[in-house]
């Protein structure tokens, strides 16, 4: 609703100057931890739609290169615990997102379908070793192996994640989320990144499970098992999505250092191969895959996934019944 209000204001060119949406987005993107100033000058003129179905859209060309207005508006509405913040300047919620911990909970910054990619890290594939040639797999993967994190799994920054009673610990699947900005069907690798709105941090949580033979709904689709955020960072501010570091910390201690440099299918190739058979829509998130050695965490622990230049996503695990 707020998106529509702002969109209408923008259409009428009646954006109140006392609420400097555009300037604040620009400023906040530059000040987002790790991003730094990188004034790009693209005017793609997209009309992205968030979420799909409701067709909430905004004229991106108007705000130029930095971030899509709808993402801004969603971000403004993110603060579950502090509804007044929807009226506050962007810098305010940026500061809240970056606060150490104990800050307000965020809503997820995307509302489309969230897709995961299995075994898209060379080291994750290597971890399986010769098992890929044995039963039940019988051969290494040929096409991208995808799965869906359904809507009951998607939560935002700082929303506690319940460790189900039947699991002693959870696997932390730190990964980059590629947020689609315009409808992508049969996209060439060379053009693929032009269909990306931006990037976000995703924690693709699972109940640890050994077999990859059958779809793993019972392990991957528990409520709250897909924290996303804090926000979507515009594509123009992420120069190379295939060269990002990903760091996982549990209770402040680094437990995994990985990145997007070792992908079997780098971001553009992945988008091309997926959209050959399946259209991706604005607001959809394509997770590029989890690296080998995914750490595990228990109830009571605080997990952060950090991708410098994209964001830091924090989730505290809580025991079932304790929330």
């Amino acid at each position: 609703m707020r998106v529509l209000q702002v969109m209408n204001r923008m259409k009428k060119r009646k954006i109140p100057r006392d609420r400097p949406y555009i300037e604040d987005v620009a400023a906040s993107c530059r000040s987002w931890p790790g991003i730094g100033a990188r004034p790009a000058a693209r005017r793609d003129g997209w009309w992205p739609a968030f979420p799909r179905g409701r067709r909430v859209s905004a004229p991106v060309g108007v705000i130029g290169e930095l971030v899509m207005l709808c993402l801004l508006e969603q971000s403004l509405a993110h603060l579950q615990d502090a509804p007044l913040a929807t009226e506050a300047p962007v810098a305010h919620w940026q500061a809240l997102a970056a606060a150490d911990h104990g800050g307000p909970r965020f809503l997820p910054p995307t509302r489309g379908t969230v897709y995961g990619t299995l075994l898209n890290h060379h080291d994750a594939l290597a971890e399986l070793g010769d098992q890929v040639n044995a039963a039940p797999y019988k051969a290494p993967p040929k096409a991208p192996i995808l799965y869906i994190k359904p809507r009951n799994t998607v939560v935002g920054h700082r929303v506690p994640v319940v460790v189900p009673g039947d699991a002693s610990e959870l696997e932390i699947g730190a990964t980059l989320g590629v947020v689609i900005g315009r409808t992508a069907s049969r996209v060439d690798e060379a053009q693929a990144l032009a269909f990306v709105a931006g990037y976000t941090v995703v924690n693709d949580i699972s109940v640890p499970h050994a077999s990859l033979y059958r779809p793993a709904l019972r392990f991957k689709c528990r409520d709250g098992f897909c924290p996303i955020g804090p926000a979507v960072v515009a594509r123009a501010l992420v120069p190379d999505p295939d060269a990002l570091d990903i760091v996982v910390a549990i209770d402040g201690e680094t437990v995994q250092r990985t990145g997007t440099a070792g992908l079997v299918r780098p971001v553009a190739r992945l988008i091309a191969d997926v959209t050959e058979f399946m259209t991706l829509y604005p607001g959809d998130v394509l997770m590029v895959g989890v690296a080998a050695g995914a750490p595990r965490a228990r109830a009571g622990q605080r997990v952060t996934v950090t991708i410098p230049g994209v964001g830091q996503l924090e989730s505290t695990l809580v025991a079932e019944g304790a929330a």
Partner: peptide, 17 residues
Amino acid sequence: DHLENYYRPNLRVKNRD
């Protein structure tokens, strides 16, 4: 044709446009 033995049946088999 597209069946593979990972999270089978996968999206390329069952989630095509």
